[in-house]
Nucleic acid binder design. Structure first.
Lengths: 207, 207
DNA sequence: TGCTAATTAGACTAGATGGTCAACTATTCA
DNA sequence: TGAATAGTTGACCATCTAGTCTAATTAGCA
């Protein structure tokens, strides 16, 4: 009963895109409404505030993009080391596609947003931490499996993941600042240099 | 001739502090003026815009803080590996002091600012890149020296530095988002795990 | 078909923000 | 001492922005 609409979805997509292309703080509610083709009255019908919208947009990002991509890349049917390098390669693909489309390397939207609001918006940065926490589990599991299969030296998976996550996020931030996808391209090699697998990881199938 | 003032300095310091504690975009010119104890008329007497001020503030940060600290830490009289780990330890000291003072781990001000304005303010992000470029030279030189002294395996210093810089910036961003200085404390160990020095680095003198 | 709830349009307000300006004050040096 | 110079002040304006409110519209359902 009553009419239906995808305005809510469009608002979430617009908010995420704009904060990624520019920055969370510099994007106004009017900007978001314009990009989404939605009037402000509708915005406040669906969301309480920009922060509220951003939290919803992050959860949507997880469900629609990150989770499916991670589930596919970190499938237990894939060699543990290859799960990680394959994922990093897909990051490179996305980033250099973005550079072609928008002329810019945009880095990780969640990380940029998190760094920006980390000291201010409590609920929003809690959501950012939540997403990172979920993502970390994929890496931890891959490293645990790699250790179990004797592919890498025994180590504390949590510590290794802290190093890897730091490196990956850092390289993405650098590539955003430098507008250079080349850094991201080298990410798999950098990570292998940290993991030092005993045998060369199984390369991905050529499509 | 004419009256003198340190208002310009106070404005630069206030701008840097506020953008670090919060974010560049969310800090208004009024905020900066209030923190500096300066009226808006004076602001526009010294600077054309917030962006103009930020550029000046970054150059000041380099001259007053980064350069002296780096010159001391990366002195050729210090063991090359120890230059790097010593520098990372000093980062940890600063970050955990900040956490005690302000209750927050603030990360790297230049990196946060760079990530935020990277796609928008051309001149400002050029200044950010310039600062990173200068800093990189210290690391490259240390690694070249380490290779020359046979402390680490031969490698391309530029590539190694890209990895190290990515890791360091990434860990700082993560520590800001997580508000956890512990990550930064582990940074020297993470970096040693990448450099893999053949002999244990010479520990710093206990004061 | 018409009822009803879901959605939209868009005008409106209050306050924040960037930016200007002319008058004012302090300092220095000739 | 008194210009000339360097810096300060606060009022002022136009614009932008978040947020509100009401009347109109539309889609699902009986």
């Amino acid at each position: 009963m009553g009419r239906t609409s995808d305005a809510k979805e469009r608002l979430m997509a617009a908010a995420l895109d704009l904060s990624w292309e520019q920055s969370y703080g510099s994007v106004t509610i009017d900007d978001i409404c314009n990009r989404a083709g939605v009037k402000k009255g509708s915005f406040y019908y669906f969301f309480e505030s920009k922060s509220d919208l951003a939290i919803a947009a992050l959860e949507r990002l997880w469900l629609e993009e990150w989770k499916p991509a991670l589930d596919a890349q970190f499938s237990p049917s894939v060699d543990p080391i290859r799960r990680i390098t394959g994922y990093l390669e897909s990051i490179y693909t996305r980033q250099s596609e973005g550079k072609v489309k928008s002329g810019r390397v945009l880095g990780c939207p969640v990380c940029s947003l998190g760094s920006e609001v980390g000291t201010q918006d409590g609920k929003l940065s809690a959501k950012v931490r939540e997403l990172f926490g979920r993502k970390k589990k994929y890496f931890e599991s891959a490293i645990r499996d790699a250790v179990a299969e004797g592919l890498v030296e025994p180590c504390d998976p949590a510590e290794k993941v802290a190093t890897l996550a730091g490196l990956v996020e850092g390289v993405l931030v650098q590539s955003r600042i430098m507008n250079d996808p080349e850094l991201v391209r080298r990410l798999p090699a950098m990570v292998l240099d940290i993991l030092r697998p005993k045998t060369a990881p199984i390369p991905s199938a050529r499509p």
